[in-house]
Simulated scan of single mutants.
Amino acid sequence: MMDSVDVPIISAHVPVYAHPGDAGADLVATESAHLEPGERAQIGTGVRIALPDGYVAFVVPRSGLAAKHGITVLNSPGTVDAGYRGEIKVTLLNTDAANAFDVAPGDRIAQLIIMALPRVTFLPVETLPDSARGEGGFGSTGYTTGHTA
């Protein structure tokens, strides 16, 4: 098991992991919103953190909201850089074509995933080494047997 990382936080609702071993800690809304089909809204969480250098936080959708209500996080994953000290806000999008969705203070609206992130040095070259995939892009790996498009 990896060592724990201390992350200083200012929040009335500290994110919590629902179950042991969960990757994401739940973020809760601090304000109300009403999302009609196709609408989006930026929702405050009241969470401000100080990530250590070499770490990044990602704001990602909650699978239950997506599966049951069509609610997702726009620009997912939202990236929180180590130097950012402002409030983490979540831009929710209602993808349901027929039903509105209401957010109330205290509702779990997204998850926060914190990861170590190596600093990368980009090395300009004339050619790249070959790989099994090559230059194949979206859809280049094909479909499963029996799939009809």
Rank of each mutant, 00 (worst) to 15 (best):
F58T: 02
P52E: 03
T91Q: 14
S32T: 12
P77T: 01
P20H: 07
L27G: 12
G139S: 01
D22E: 03
T121I: 11
L65V: 03
G44Y: 04
A50N: 10
D3K: 11
E87C: 13
I9Y: 12
E31P: 09
L112F: 01
A82R: 03
V28Q: 14
R40Y: 07
H147R: 10
I9H: 11
D53C: 02
L65S: 02
K68F: 03
V73Y: 04
T121L: 11
D102E: 13
D53N: 06
H13P: 05
P20N: 09
D102S: 15
V80I: 12
N75C: 05
Y55W: 07
H69C: 06
L27C: 09
F101T: 01
T148G: 13
A104D: 12
G54C: 02
R48I: 00
A12D: 14
T30Q: 15
E31G: 10
G136S: 05
S63V: 07
V73S: 05
P77M: 00
S4W: 13
K89M: 12
A57C: 00
Q111S: 05
D3L: 09
T79D: 03
T121A: 12
P118D: 13
G83E: 07
V5W: 07
V16W: 05
D6F: 08
A25P: 14
A29E: 09
A23D: 05
D22K: 05
V16A: 12
Q42P: 02
V120D: 08
L65T: 02
D107Y: 08
D22T: 05
M115V: 12
T127Q: 11
E87D: 13
E39A: 11
L51P: 09
I109E: 08
H13K: 14
V73D: 05
I71D: 04
G54E: 02
G136Q: 09
D53W: 00
R85D: 15
R133H: 09
G134R: 08
G139D: 04
V7G: 05
Q42T: 11
V120L: 10
I109D: 07
E126C: 11
K89T: 10
V16L: 15
L74F: 09
Y55A: 02
V56G: 00
P129E: 10
D96G: 10
P118Y: 13
L123H: 15
K68L: 03
N75V: 03
T121C: 09
N99L: 06
K89I: 02
G64C: 07
Q111L: 07
N75S: 08
V16H: 07
G38R: 11
P77F: 01
A67H: 12
V60S: 02
G21R: 03
L128H: 15
T144W: 12
